[in-house]
Amino acid sequence: MTNRRSIRVREDFAATAAEQGHTTKTAIAQAIGLDPSNVGRVLRGNAKPSNEFIAGALALGSFEDLFEVR
């Protein structure tokens, strides 16, 4: 049996984004180039971050500051 790992946003993702001046999910979405509803689902934990989400989010900070691998 293989133990599959996945990437998740860190609990403090929104706080890290806020440090960059992106204080709402709409502002975060604009900064990373995605729809606010997609950002909201990822931040709530209802969806895993897509490759596009991860790539765009790197404009807000380092991978280690924004994501965790479980």
Rank of each mutant, 00 (worst) to 15 (best):
A55L: 13
T26A: 14
M1V: 07
R8H: 13
A17P: 14
N46K: 04
L34I: 10
A14Y: 06
E64H: 15
L34Q: 05
A18G: 12
L58G: 05
R41F: 02
T2M: 05
N3M: 06
L43F: 03
T2H: 07
P49E: 00
R5T: 14
L60S: 02
T16K: 15
R41L: 01
T24M: 09
A59T: 15
T23D: 14
E52W: 01
A15R: 03
L60F: 12
A59S: 12
A18E: 13
S62K: 05
A18F: 03
D12P: 07
K25V: 14
R4S: 13
E64I: 07
H22A: 14
E19I: 11
F63M: 05
T23N: 10
E52P: 01
A47K: 07
A15W: 10
F53W: 02
T24P: 12
T26S: 15
Q30I: 12
T24Q: 04
G45F: 01
R70M: 10
D12G: 04
R44T: 09
D35Y: 00
T23C: 08
E68R: 11
N51D: 13
V42M: 00
A31P: 05
M1A: 03
V42R: 01
A27H: 09
A55C: 13
F67Q: 00
N3Y: 09
G21K: 01
R70F: 00
V9N: 03
Q20F: 11
P36A: 06
E11L: 09
F63L: 08
A15E: 15
L43Q: 00
R4H: 09
G61A: 02
I28N: 01
F13R: 03
M1P: 00
A31G: 03
V9S: 12
R44V: 08
N46F: 06
Q30M: 11
N51G: 05
N3F: 07
R10M: 08
F53T: 04
V69T: 12
S37Y: 00
V9E: 00
S50P: 06
D35M: 03
V9C: 10
A55M: 12
R5V: 10
N46C: 02
K48L: 11
